[in-house]
Computed example of a mutant assay.
Amino acid sequence: MKVLAAMSGGVDSAVAAARAVEAGHDVVGVHLALSRMPGTLRTGSRGCCTIEDSRDAWRACDILGIPYYVWDFSERFKEDVVDDFVAEYAAGRTPNPCMRCNERIKFAALLEKALALGFDAVCTGHYAKVITDADGNPELHRAADWAKDQSYVLGVLTHEQLKHSMFPLAETPSKAEVRAEAERRGLSVANKPDSHDICFIPDGDTRGWLEERIDMTEGDIVDSSGEKIGTHPGANAFTVGQRKGLKLGRPADDGKPRFVLEIRPKENKVVVGPEKLLNIDQMRGIKISWAGLPIPEIEARTQFDCMVQVRAHGDPVAARGWMEDVASDEADGGVREELVVRLNEPMRGVAPGQSMVIYQGTRVLGQATIDSARSLEWDPAAVS
């Protein structure tokens, strides 16, 4: 099989490519250049896809004896990931840029080009597995090592993309084993630290970076009943769950701290309230995609048991899910599909814009972008 190995410059992608070569595939390595100004991406252990990562990827391919190329996806990355990140924050949502990068760059754009060039599959160093069912349809499942499992950030992959996805690290029991294997193979990235944080914010100051790109206008801070209790320098500077920096003019009646419950950019309001209202009971998701074929309950519009996860390394929570057709607030007055998830127990720290990934057992059913998340003890309509 002709395989394109996506080489990030890290140890996982290097070992994944090595295993694909060892399995007898015809492998070509490619590194994605995501910025034409390397200084705008994080470097060292905190970044990915930088110049130094490109060199590490080249060295790995040289050791493996496979061709190596660098593909410039910087324009697509800016439009589909960076600009989307800014737009989502401007709309009062909290996006996950790694999800968008996997969805639109590392699989949509990369796989599209790979297939056009005659490759059969794209190989990456993600910790997840693809299992084929009795009818030959691919399913996305958690990796053997749940501590390193990355199925959450791959929840955006579609049925067709899964058909051409290869994850050689799926059954690896630990990251330590991957590093030891890299050492045995003579790969210089064996002990390279993992990348983390947002790669396109060099100093890690997300708030400061956003303030340079989003107009901030003073507005009202209101409580959960809609009463004005303070002012803010710009609604987009706040995040759901935030407690510090509110600078409210008066304490709550019970003397307890108040937290950001909701951000309303159209009204330029920040809604605050007691901590208990951060316990989310229900979420509604839009921009839904299914990882493989949808389960029968989706087509039948019936409820189903599931587990829902809202962070890459968050704990999944038991829930009931169902699909609903909801009147759209768009100008055409149409109808949109929403995925509704009712949690069996409350979840903290959920904000619109995050991705909720739905599981049954180890299988990823699909994902949706959270459009609203609320405590059933509070009706946001109370804030006028």
Results as ranks from 00 to 15, higher is better:
Gly241Tyr: 00
Phe259Gln: 04
Gly226Gln: 08
Gly136Cys: 12
Gly234Pro: 08
Ile51Trp: 08
Ile105Cys: 07
Pro202Phe: 11
Thr302Asp: 09
Glu227Met: 12
Gln360Phe: 02
Gly361Leu: 01
Cys98Ser: 13
Ser355Thr: 13
Leu210Phe: 12
Ala33Arg: 14
Ile286Leu: 05
Arg250Gln: 02
Ala18Arg: 01
Lys129Leu: 14
Trp290Lys: 06
Asp120Arg: 14
Val178Ile: 13
Glu79Asn: 13
Ser174Lys: 00
Thr158Ala: 05
Ala60Gly: 04
Leu115Cys: 02
Ala14Glu: 11
Ala91Val: 06
Ala33Leu: 14
Ser375Cys: 00
Arg46Cys: 05
Ser151Asp: 05
Pro346Ile: 02
Arg213Glu: 05
Ala114Asn: 06
Val21Gly: 00
Glu177Thr: 08
Asn279Gln: 14
Glu330Tyr: 13
Gly155Ala: 13
Phe200Cys: 04
Gly349Trp: 01
Asp197Phe: 13
Thr369Cys: 05
Thr124Cys: 06
Leu34Thr: 03
Phe259Ile: 10
Asp135Leu: 15
Arg142Asn: 06
Lys192Arg: 12
Ser225His: 15
His164Glu: 03
Phe238Thr: 04
Leu187Thr: 12
Asp194Gln: 09
Gly292Ile: 11
Met323Thr: 00
Gly226Met: 10
Pro168Ile: 08
Asp133Thr: 03
Thr231Ile: 11
Glu177Pro: 13
Cys101Lys: 11
Ile358Lys: 01
Asn191Trp: 06
Lys228Ser: 08
Asp220Met: 05
Glu75Val: 00
Ile201Trp: 02
Leu210Asn: 02
Lys129Tyr: 04
Met323Glu: 00
Ser372Asp: 07
Asn102Cys: 10
Phe119Cys: 12
Asp135Lys: 15
His196Tyr: 10
Ala237Tyr: 07
Glu299Asn: 01
Val153Asp: 12
Lys269Tyr: 11
Glu181Phe: 01
Gly136Glu: 11
Val82Gln: 14
